[in-house]
Amino acid sequence: MTERPLIGVTTSRQSGWRIFPLVALNLWLAGGRGVRWVAGRPSDIATVDGLIIGGGDDISPDLYGGEIITSARLDPDRDAMEQCLVEEAMARGKPVLGICRGAQMLNVALGGTLHEDAYGVYTASDRHWTILPRKEIEIVPDTRLGRLAGVRPMRVNALHSQAVKELGAGLRIAARDTGGMVQAVERVEEPFALGVQWHPEHLFYAYRQRALFRALVAAARAGREARNQLPVVSDLAGA
């Protein structure tokens, strides 16, 4: 039996102990396995087949030239670790799934910027703060996310205050909410990389959410076998 691809999963030092088991469950259901990484402890991209940047505190605007707002909760050590991991993953051809903060970090690590107060900018966006799927998003047609999860409107959860502003290099928008705020980004070239603004790990009962983890694990397996990842993910979408 082929060994399950190993995925490094970054978490916060405060809440990671309760979030990581959910992410690990989703990875296991998708055919992978996870290892938890936190700032201040070893994290080596060479030892894993793929990477998940998990949710948590806001990303410091020092990374993208923004301005600090008083309500921001920051973790500079985690910022530095995750930025380095994303850059190394791209350089080594390792696939990445960004979850909430992770989607923002994927964008920032590739040279993009963020709205520090996303709902102050997108005043027409429905503001929710819940792990329940109450926020409606619209998936962009002809995207990898659309092929994986379908393009009909999707209900997701929401636990964020920041959002993507200017896109990082090689990324495109894959979903927005009904007020126009970016809700997903994806890389257009190898290796596979997808960032979603919501928390799919809490929605493991939904087939469309499990598809995101299946795509990451399939890409990780392909990368480990020195195969192109995007065709494998496309084949998975058509399965």
Rank of each mutant, 00 (worst) to 15 (best):
A80F: 02
S71M: 06
D75W: 06
M90A: 09
E67Q: 13
I69Q: 13
P76M: 06
E88M: 05
G93V: 11
E67N: 10
I68M: 06
I68W: 01
A72I: 04
A89D: 05
C84K: 15
A72D: 14
T70F: 09
A72L: 11
A80Y: 04
A72E: 10
D77Y: 03
P76Q: 02
A89Y: 02
I69N: 07
M90D: 07
V86F: 06
D77Q: 13
G65V: 02
E87N: 09
M90S: 03
L74A: 07
D75Q: 10
A80I: 11
C84W: 10
Y64H: 06
R92I: 07
K94M: 04
C84V: 15
D77G: 10
E87M: 09
V86C: 12
Y64V: 00
A89I: 07
K94T: 07
R78W: 02
Y64A: 01
E67I: 09
T70K: 12
M90C: 10
M90N: 08
S71N: 08
L74Y: 01
K94G: 07
Q83Y: 13
R78E: 01
R92K: 14
I68H: 09
R92N: 11
L85C: 08
G93E: 09
D79F: 07
E87L: 11
G65F: 02
R73T: 13
